[in-house]
Design a protein around this nucleic acid. Structure first.
Length: 366
DNA sequence: AATGATACTCGGC
DNA sequence: TTACGGCCGAGTATCATT
């Protein structure tokens, strides 16, 4: 029986900053990404728990966080984000976990799964998790919460139950009682739409969902999604760990001034496209879908994308394509003015080898 | 009608 | 009073294919 860990770092960026500057240990820390427009224009990327106590949280405008800091008269540290540093810390933590795990799968910069199936039982697993927490503190100076379960679905939900610095072990025979009381939208893959449709069936919790017969779910959500819901309600999930490659690579930036003038935007898109393609080709890949991201002055995010029949490796091609997509978008929205623009590439495939699909068509019949 | 691919938006940190 | 980044994967809508 597999034993899967989900390791979730607590307030990761803020913890990284506390770790490298001891004078911040007892001081609330707010990690910010600045836009370059004015001194305090930006958003909060992460807030330490002692900063969250004052109502400051990720996604909040920096000025708002500053305003709170003034009101509460606390000595709160505002620090610009340094992602390369957090990425380094993340790698160190990954190495520590990898030293005792059969396999590690990074899920993001601050989350990873680990296969600990070699451990004899869940008591041993919980002990190992506590030891791992200490190892991580020692090596990286940050704390983590760890969920343990028979698969990734359960481990991920478990890691969230007790934060920060918690360990939640859910052995196989307690999975159902652990999941049953949870609202269905805590299941990975159940969004607002699915939750709404389930609510129409009188389903609010996982236990409710388990009461719905499989053919009924298939009938309402289709074979694939229906079966998937049926399995999740019973705590069945993947135990496969893989160091997954990213499915998309993008760059996004805030314009110096709000504009809809192509002459202002073109050079920005060109630069972003170059950076994206450098990252794509740096991995030895090519891309087959180009997307332009437009963030309007009222902070609405809009995207337009198109796919090529053959994979591409040219920055110029990406630039020309997103430029065209953006012109099209702006001509359809004559009143729209942009604050930020971005370029995304996706649909990756290996830089060499072509697909063989054309050879397999035409067989079978109808 | 069901399934899979593609386009687009949303949410989390 | 307002204030507002950058990046990713998940979720959903829509369309083509069968």
């Amino acid at each position: 029986m597999p034993i899967i860990f989900h390791v979730d770092m607590d307030a990761f960026f803020a913890s990284c900053e506390k770790a490298r500057r001891s004078e911040l240990v007892d001081r609330p820390v707010v990690v910010c990404v600045y836009s370059g427009r004015g001194k305090e224009s930006g958003a909060v990327s992460a807030a330490s728990y002692d900063a969250r106590d004052h109502g400051i949280h990720a996604g909040m405008p920096v000025r708002q966080a500053r305003s709170i800091a003034r009101e509460v008269e606390q000595d709160i540290a505002f620090i610009g984000a340094e992602k390369a540093f957090y990425s380094d810390v993340s790698h160190r933590i990954r190495d520590i976990i990898a030293a005792t795990a059969a396999e590690v799968e990074p899920a993001s910069v601050d989350e990873m799964y680990a296969d600990m199936s070699h451990l004899p039982d869940y008591d041993a697993a919980a002990d190992r998790a506590a030891a791992l927490q200490e190892d991580i503190v020692e090596a990286a100076g940050v704390t983590a919460s760890i969920g343990i379960g028979p698969n990734k679905l359960v481990a991920k939900i478990a890691s969230d139950r007790d934060k920060p610095e918690g360990v939640t072990a859910v052995p196989p025979d307690t999975v159902q009682e652990f999941l049953d009381p949870l609202p269905v939208d805590e299941l990975h893959g159940v969004g607002p739409k699915t939750a709404d449709m389930l609510a129409d069936l009188g389903v609010r919790t996982v236990e409710d969902l388990r009461g719905v017969r499989r053919p009924e779910l298939v009938d309402r959500f289709g074979e694939s999604n229906g079966v998937s819901l049926y399995r999740k309600a019973r705590g069945e999930g993947s135990t496969e760990l893989e160091d997954a490659d990213p499915e998309q690579l993008s760059r996004l930036t805030t314009l110096r001034d709000d504009t809809r003038d192509p002459d202002d935007i073109a050079p920005v898109l060109q630069e972003l496209a170059q950076q994206v393609v450098d990252r794509v080709t740096g991995r030895g890949w090519r891309y087959s879908t180009a997307t332009v991201i437009a963030v309007t002055t009222d902070l609405e995010r809009r995207t337009r994308s198109t796919s090529f029949t053959a994979p591409q490796d040219s920055a110029e091609r990406l630039y020309e394509t997103v430029q065209q997509l953006l012109q099209q978008f702006l001509s359809e929205h004559p009143e729209t003015v942009l604050r930020r623009v971005g370029v995304r590439a996706s649909g990756f495939e290996d830089g060499r080898q072509e697909t063989l699909e054309s050879f397999t068509g035409g067989t079978g019949g109808s």
